[in-house]
Amino acid sequence: MNQGRVWKYGDDVNTDVIFPGKYTYQPMEPAEMAEHALEDLDAGFAEAVQPGDIIVAGKNFGCGSSREQAATCLKAAGVAAIIAPSFSRIFFRNAINSGLPVIELAEGTDAIQTGDSVGIDFTAGVVEHDGRTYSFPPLPPEVLAILEDGGLIPHVKKVLNG
């Protein structure tokens, strides 16, 4: 069971507020991207986030642009996982491809608040909060393999090199 401290946000958190467009076409390493994470949603986040923290949000997390930095910056900031009732399609792929676990949790997110502690068991497909457990469909093995290798690029490199 991975335990983490929660940052809670609402519905439709878009990629522009996660990682502003003005930085999108500047050459930048992940550590610098992390300094801008959630800049236009929660200006205090980048400084206060701790490795292992978990983002819990409302529906349609990551809607908008295809910019992969929206996932990369959160991963580099130390975010261990994002839990939401639904994710935008491109963000979902980008997160997996960046090695950042994303959990589609149908119920339970409403009760979780900033500062709460949440436990995640990826293999069993269970989220634990305040003595209650909520289950989610575990990711397919192909997708888990990408996460375990740390993202799509290292995964493909490994596959191509046999």
Binding site: S65, S66, A71, N94, N97, G151, I153
Partner: peptide, 24 residues
Amino acid sequence: DSHTTTYGAFGAFSAGIGRSEMAV
């Protein structure tokens, strides 16, 4: 690019993907 969906206007199947996927 997320607005890759535009080419559906011509009867193409077109969708946005991320940078890592394009690299692959």
